[in-house]
């Protein structure tokens, strides 16, 4: 073959980062199960810091492991999109968070990446979003694991064609929101002893006035806010993605390979010739 200096060694050696990803997922799942099973009694009684520390460190370590596992495997074209996604998350999240709406809308960028580049990229984007955002708002840091989960679930939904029909996107968002909300509730309960917003706080107060424990009240609030929030986010992302020109959509291998979006059908079953239509426009 030709001089090695100008070309890459044929098929790039895919580094096996699966172990780190699995460890990260296990850390998050393990932390959640521990917190729910042990239902620490000190939540409103004692200093409450042991469970806060466990929630914080378990979820954070999991999120960091996910990032370390996924980030080096992403192609540069996906990597440069992540800051764009984070900017969308932060700008919208900061704006909506300051209004009196019990939603967050801070995952639009994450879900966008997940739909265009897949579950792994989505999970990493979610986790990175919380970590980078904590630079101006440290209170979002503990939610890194929940954000990663939403990114992952959005990617899975996209892979299984839930973005091919417009009406399925909010359904997928609703389901992802239920899971994400349930997982994030212990963080709100143990780390914050409540919620960080006024509107969400009002909902928790309502459940508390009926005598619920703090964790139960926050979980119920999350089950009201999160599914609606994520249904809105998934719908907005579907609107955005379908407004992108075909050529832009098709430049993402994940979209081509799994036929994520309607109207990106490929006549040949093999993945190899998928790019032709895009190339011919140029």
């Amino acid at each position: 073959m030709s001089s090695p200096s100008l070309t890459l060694p044929s098929p790039a050696t895919a580094r096996n980062r699966r172990l780190l990803e699995t460890l990260g997922a296990l850390a998050i799942a393990g932390t959640y199960i521990y917190l729910v099973l042990n239902q620490p009694a000190d939540i409103t009684g004692g200093p409450g810091s042991a469970s806060a520390l466990i929630a914080l460190s378990g979820f954070l370590v999991g999120a960091v492991l996910l990032i370390v596992g996924v980030l080096p495997t992403l192609p540069v074209s996906t990597l440069v999109l992540i800051p764009v996604a984070l900017v969308l998350n932060i700008v919208l999240g900061q704006f909506v968070g300051s209004t009196l709406v019990p939603f967050y809308l801070d995952a639009i960028g994450t879900v966008l990446i997940a739909v265009l580049a897949g579950p792994a990229a989505g999970a990493a984007t979610g986790a990175l979003s919380s970590i980078v955002w904590s630079f101006f708002n440290p209170t979002v840091l503990p939610f890194a694991a929940g954000a990663a989960l939403i990114g992952f679930l959005a990617g899975v939904a996209a892979r299984h064609g839930l973005f091919r029909r417009f009406y399925l996107a909010p359904v997928a968002g609703f389901l992802a929101g239920i899971i994400g909300g349930v997982v994030s509730a212990p963080v709100a309960a143990f780390v914050f002893g409540g919620t960080s917003g006024l509107a969400t706080g009002a909902i928790v107060s309502a459940f508390r006035s009926m005598g619920d424990t703090l964790l139960a009240a926050i979980t119920k609030q999350a089950l009201i806010s999160d599914p609606m929030d994520k249904a809105i986010v998934f719908t907005l992302v579907a609107v955005l993605v379908y407004a992108l020109p075909r050529r832009t959509r098709l430049q993402f291998p994940f979209v081509r390979r799994h036929r994520v979006l309607a109207g990106t059908a490929i006549s040949q079953p093999t993945g190899e010739s998928t790019g032709k239509s895009a190339g011919q426009d140029a």
Binding site: S77, R247, Q251, S273, G275, K276, A278, G279, Q280
Partner: peptide
């Protein structure tokens, strides 16, 4: 900048 293979032949 436009690598053969990504989206074209």
């Amino acid at each position: 900048w436009l690598l053969p293979g990504d989206g074209g032949t």
